[in-house]
Design a protein around this nucleic acid. Sequence first.
DNA 1: CGGAAAACTTGACAGGGATCAAACTTGTCG
DNA 2: CGACAAGTTTGATCCCTGTCAAGTTTTCCG
Lengths: 270, 270
Amino acid sequence: MFNKKQHVDFQGQSKLGVPPYNNTDSTSERAFRKTSNHCPHNTACEGCSSRHLSLCSALDRDELKDFSKISIDYQKEAKQIICSEDEEAKYLYNIRSGTVRISKMLSDGRRQITGFLFAGDFFGLSCKDRYNFTAEAVTNVDICRFPRTKIMQSFRDYPNLGERVFDMTRTELDSTHDQMLLLGRKTAQEKLCSFLLAMKEKLGRLEVVAENEVDIPMSRTDIADYLGLTVETISRQFTKLHKKGLIEMEGAHKVFLKDIKALSALAIGD
Amino acid sequence: MFNKKQHVDFQGQSKLGVPPYNNTDSTSERAFRKTSNHCPHNTACEGCSSRHLSLCSALDRDELKDFSKISIDYQKEAKQIICSEDEEAKYLYNIRSGTVRISKMLSDGRRQITGFLFAGDFFGLSCKDRYNFTAEAVTNVDICRFPRTKIMQSFRDYPNLGERVFDMTRTELDSTHDQMLLLGRKTAQEKLCSFLLAMKEKLGRLEVVAENEVDIPMSRTDIADYLGLTVETISRQFTKLHKKGLIEMEGAHKVFLKDIKALSALAIGD
DNA sequence: CGGAAAACTTGACAGGGATCAAACTTGTCG
DNA sequence: CGACAAGTTTGATCCCTGTCAAGTTTTCCG
């Protein structure tokens, strides 16, 4: 049996490349936490930096004020678990900042990461009474969560909200189909190129960086488990792309895409 | 580059194992078509055999009568295309009977089947203005379709309908995550076992067959493209399971699961 | 600053599944 | 019925990616 991990491990990744908003030292981190705990019912929805990206964009100012009453806002440090597979699915989680990974595991430790989520993304809705995935913080994250029972009612109270969430769900279903094509039919090189380009797209919307620069927040292991490969293969493919002159690296987490056109062609096997 | 198909092919599969409801000879087939064309606006929603399985189950008798006005009902023969990638996404399709495959292709012909759909399933909603997948009839199918513009309005007019479709969409998103775990991390044997068990589950709800009997409507090639493998590997794994005494075959499309427990264990890599 | 642990890279080798080829079986249709 | 086409199975061989191992770089933390 290949690719079975001998030991189940939950290790996370280095902090290199963590976006600036949570690149805090431990002191300011603690202060931040305290402020947040001081105000558990997040009355600051109105000023939420990820509001325009998230499901909340469907609400006007008054609706948001009401809606914020059922949410609480908190933080998780990198590598912490947000929710686990088989745990009772009480909440819908909404990411305000940072990166989260959603994964599933086989009993012998083989892991598949089914998605990376960023500011504005939510999770915890597409499941029955128990989560059928594990969500972990890749970087420090700022999240708000809503009781699922109440959120379902909100969808009825605010049809715009329901439609917005439905839209986002359909968009996600769309992209899972792309990911299935990738997992089932693409080569290692095509997978990595696809990944880099997708990351550029997603992160490009969230942070302002130099053109063609991508700050990859997750570890090589995470990338491997997302693309259905091993760490070693990921590493070798990075080297290969670098030798081809298609990418430039600065540490393991900052990548410059030197030739988007060539990378795009490689990504779809042309 | 491995597994790149030399020729793009749209071949379907033999008719062996097609469920009885469309195991008609060409004469009765034509008669059926004529009847259907005679009555394009499907006033027979009320008596629809897949109604209780489909999104329509959210509607009561009067609502269904209204709703049926925006649908038309028709048939496609096995191997025919229902809608194609990049084609304008005008309709939502609902399957009344038969099997449909949803697939995506790379330019060199490598294909990934992202799902098989059966009576009660719908498709065509999770996309922007153009379909990003191709839907083809695996067996003869009986489908009804709705203009997308009108269906969105129906979701508002009949909130139960909207919720039902949302539910079904979330359930589907769920299962795509299982499929990603399968594609990214399972071995050929585990993939096939998972597939057989999933088919037993799905088909068990639709047709009455002997306990542990599974009538697989699709070809080996389709199974391969669904599991991210090649036809040859599928065939070899079938043989292997047979030699292990876990399955019995009758032709290529009728399978008897002799040891569900053992198959289940193999499916998740225990 | 310094030492240990974690993360990443590189090399040698192996194997699961792909590829190529051919035989066999089943379905189609005149 | 009979012949051709399509689908399936089996065998021989290859190669991409996994596995195992070791070395290097980066991060963590006293």
